[in-house]
Design a protein around this nucleic acid. Structure first.
Lengths: 142, 142
DNA sequence: CCAAGGCTGAGAATGGTTCTCATGCCCCGA
DNA sequence: TCGGGGCATGAGAACCATTCTCAGCCTTGG
């Protein structure tokens, strides 16, 4: 199960790109970013690496309204949620102790088992506020 | 903006299929269901109709972990969340007054504006419990 | 240093969703 | 009731994100 992963320059490049930002990025964006930087990595490899990292809890994954997957390396590996800028993808890790218990309680009261929950907050961060020098969505599409 | 929608038998069929269940269904499932029932409707029309209904707040939409869109006609049109059975798709509408305020508060404290939130609960309903006569996932895939 | 087998990448394949466009038919006005 | 404008329909192509294929490459254990 716990398969040993080889350290290749491609994996290092993807991991590096993730470490360099606190914004959620799509596989395609990361691929393009690596290409521009010169660290050309195959798209398939980017997907495979992200998949492996996600499976190992190394990165967090969430879906945009149109179903695209976004990845981000978070500081903590424990369960947490995010407040994400819908424009640039910048994210802040947040806790929701109240939500946790509420979710479990509601689920149980309805007779459901194996309760899990999806809780994400979306907003517009200060840099992306329409007023000031708007950051022209270098991140999230849509 | 508020465009007038013509009432066609296709739209009636899709709406009817949605009214007949309290489970979240994908466009493909609804299409197949209508076909089996004899009310053949083009897949494109199913998608268009669901899109229109969703835009008008007539149906709720959510995404599975793999990005597929699921639709359900809910009793209430006001903001609410769901507790969904990950096996059959059956859903219960739930409120989260605490969550609402928590979300707004957290968002504001981080300087984000136009806060919105995604909160869905997933579990296994009584009928889908592995023990008893398991309902063989007539609903949700995966 | 070497062999074994995981890793890579270009391109094909998948699968959900949307678009195209010729034809169909709802609904309003006369 | 009849006619027609124009939204609605549907088969198939197009899109797009993601996954699969497979021959050749490269990391790693010994």
């Amino acid at each position: 199960m716990t398969q040993q992963l080889r350290m290749t320059k491609q994996r290092a490049a993807v991991a590096g790109a993730l470490d360099a930002t606190d914004e959620f990025r799509s596989a395609q964006q990361l691929h393009e970013q690596l290409r521009d930087r010169g660290d050309a990595v195959g798209l398939a490899t980017v997907y495979r690496t992200l998949q492996a990292l996600a499976a190992g809890g190394e990165v967090d994954v969430l879906r945009t309204d149109d179903g695209e997957a976004l990845y981000r390396r978070c500081a903590r590996t424990e369960h947490h949620h995010h407040l994400v800028c819908r424009s640039c993808g910048r994210a802040v890790e947040i806790d929701g102790p109240t939500v946790e218990s509420w979710a479990a309680q509601v689920g149980a009261s309805q007779g459901f088992t194996d309760i899990e929950h999806t809780v994400e907050l979306w907003g517009t961060c200060t840099d992306c506020r329409p007023s000031a020098g708007r950051k022209v969505r270098p991140g999230i599409p849509q």
